[in-house]
Design a protein around this nucleic acid. Structure first.
Length: 569
RNA sequence: CGGGACGUAGCGCAGCUUGGUAGCGCGCAUCGUUCGGGACGAUGAGGUCGCCGGUUCAAAUCCGGCCGUCCCGACCA
């Protein structure tokens, strides 16, 4: 491509509304433009990167036996009602109606539709099957952000596996794990595999691939010693057990005027340290008020609450709901003697005694509470948020917590969707069994952004060769110098012929402008052709990643570049 | 959905307090001089001041409503 003919609208200034590095650089480098919140147009450079990402994904999926197909983005609402997700995912569904008055949904993911197609499978002999597509998803995110990292319309590679039993699913899951590992390697992003919550997907097991980055939105608990890694939505940890002094035979109520928080009670004369307090929260789970208990210094993780209870709709109770339920305001709540609502308690409260909690009477608390004796716990769950420094659940060494971008997610779905939609086959015994499904997703544009987050500097993007829009840029220093253009054009032709993606900067601009643009858009190799080098029969090679410069003999330049680029791919 | 900020030329911004001809830098076009790390001079083109309504002789500016965008939080694959 000749830069003079290309549409590469680079900007001198950073766009003000772009915070994340990938957002800022992709806009400034002329890769994309925003159309509306969370919706972007990919310009020629952006489209080239996207195509390369897709090619890599496609190659790796084909390598594990995936069959590519294409399903609609427009779905009838009824199918989504059959699995209950019209309701459970309602807040992110784009919905529309057609001329017949029917309701339609723009697909946010495709489990329902793949399962529908899979109803045509009839025998275990046809299994396993692995189908995938590379297709546009629509999710009406409450808060799109950070350019391509969190958008409302995006391309996803989603694959779905169908097996007759769990053993088959496990195999397909493991194959995807390996394929994903190769994909991220080839994309030039380091992704860490972590245990994750399945969220709205349901199913038994799921693994996220997380690219460490402060621009991400997921917190990962990681053990440097043994390699344990889990999203905090799911991570557990060990903490020292707490030794309780013996307490009274029954709880004692005492006045605590003005005490409304854990900290207040710690500082209150006759109060207790946070470790000795029981925090009582009121949540409404699918319309049902529920008490949630944790140790005073522990934070609830709502995803754990949702996963642990299977609730679809989950929210903190309103002040009036709390008062109606317990007869007191937040700050004086407790579960002692409460019998109506469900009481969910964090595991760390088990066997604790002589603790302090609210008395369900404003400005009063109870001391000497023995959890097992005094509170009618309905269910014990892991509800607390893991914190850095706590013990690894596998080896006990201190955990680290880091931020990252969810670059991919693979799920063992089980039979949730096949049962709901009637996708069954006959097994070897002639008995109809629901297909055992897995689903596996990678966000294409999100991975482009993740690659930029990981690979950039002050002057611009540093693309991995594998997904760079062009592998080589030839910078012709002086376009009205005949010798320069002869050499530059010949090199351009030779590289093109050798199958190298090459861009020649033949614009009539000053060299500084060209160098800066080349670095901004992040082409891995820049070859400078100009009178200065030509005088000694050389062109200059600059490596965008290392910053190193070297000289190439003109006659050997094309061959040498082909060798370098081919090796780096 | 809660909190905060912003909307004026392709991009980055000033002007608004105190109402009166819409400005600056970059970019763009033409010409000239330049040319190995974002040149210089000259001459130009380009704007329903987010939208609707109100006040006023007069609104980018004051008032009301709406829309849009970003950031923090909540939520989310």
């Amino acid at each position: 491509m000749r830069w003079s003919q290309a549409f590469i609208p680079t900007l001198r200034d950073d766009p003000t509304d772009a915070e994340a590095a990938s957002h800022r650089l992709l806009v400034r480098g002329g890769y994309m433009r925003q159309l509306m919140s969370g919706v972007y147009s990919l310009l020629p450079l952006g489209y080239r990167v996207r195509s390369k990402v897709i090619t890599i994904i496609r190659e790796e999926l084909n390598a594990i036996g995936g069959q590519e197909l294409l399903l609609p983005a427009l779905h009838p609402r009824e199918i989504w009602e059959q699995t209950g997700r019209a309701e459970s995912m309602a807040d992110i569904l784009f919905t529309l109606s057609d001329l017949r008055g029917g309701d339609a949904i723009l697909g946010p993911t495709h489990e329902e539709i793949f399962a529908t197609v899979a109803t045509e499978l009839t025998s275990y002999k046809q299994l396993p099957q692995l189908w995938y597509q590379i297709q546009t998803k629509f999710r009406d995110e409450a808060r799109p952000k950070s350019g391509l990292l969190r958008v409302r319309e995006f391309t996803m590679k989603d694959s779905y596996s169908f097996d007759v039993d769990d053993a088959g699913l496990d195999q397909q899951f493991d194959r995807h794990f390996a394929a994903y590992t190769r994909i991220f390697e080839r994309l030039g992003v380091t992704a860490v595999a972590v245990e994750a919550s399945s969220g709205a997907m349901g199913g038994s097991d799921s693994i996220e691939f997380i690219v460490p980055s402060p621009a991400g939105e997921d917190d990962i608990a990681h053990c440097p010693a043994c390699g344990y890694a889990a999203n905090v939505e799911r991570a557990s940890s060990t903490i020292p057990s707490f030794h309780d002094e013996p307490g009274p035979d029954q709880p004692e109520r005492f006045p605590t005027p003005g005490v409304h928080t854990i900290v207040d009670l710690e500082e209150f004369e006759g109060g207790a340290s946070a470790e000795r307090q029981i925090k009582t929260l009121v949540y409404v789970l699918d319309g049902e008020p529920t008490l949630v208990l944790l140790r005073g210094d522990h934070e609830l993780h709502e995803q754990k609450l949702q996963d642990g209870t299977g609730a679809i709709d989950i929210r903190p109770g309103q002040p009036d709901e709390i008062r109606e339920l317990l007869g007191a305001d937040a700050g004086s709540l407790g579960a002692v003697g409460v019998t109506g609502p469900r009481i969910l308690a964090d595991l760390q409260l088990a066997d604790r005694s002589n603790m302090v909690t609210g008395a369900n009477l404003d400005d009063h608390h109870l001391r000497g509470v023995d959890v097992g004796r005094d509170i009618a716990v309905t269910e014990w769950l892991d509800l607390r948020t893991v914190a850095a420094g706590e013990g690894c659940p596998q080896c006990g060494e201190p955990l680290e917590v880091f931020r990252g971008i969810e670059a991919g997610h693979i799920f063992k779905l089980g039979t949730k969707f096949s049962k709901a939609l009637g996708a069954t086959v006959l097994n070897a015994d002639g008995v109809p069994v629901p297909l055992v499904m897995g689903s596996y997703g990678i966000g294409v544009e999100r991975n482009m952004a993740a690659a930029v987050e990981m690979n950039h500097d002050d002057t611009g993007i540093i693309w991995p060769v594998s997904i760079a829009p062009y592998e080589v840029v030839i910078t012709a220093v002086k376009v009205d110098d005949e010798a320069t253009m002869t050499v530059a054009n010949r090199l351009y032709d030779d590289l093109n012929e050798a199958g190298i993606d090459v861009l020649i900067d033949d614009r009539n601009e000053r060299p500084g402008v060209k160098f800066n643009d080349a670095e901004l858009i992040g082409i891995p190799y820049r070859v400078t052709v100009g009178p200065r080098g030509l005088a000694s029969d050389i062109v200059e090679l600059a490596d965008r990643c290392t910053g190193e410069k070297s000289e190439l003999q003109i006659e050997a330049a094309a061959q040498e570049l082909v060798r370098i680029v081919t090796r780096a791919r």
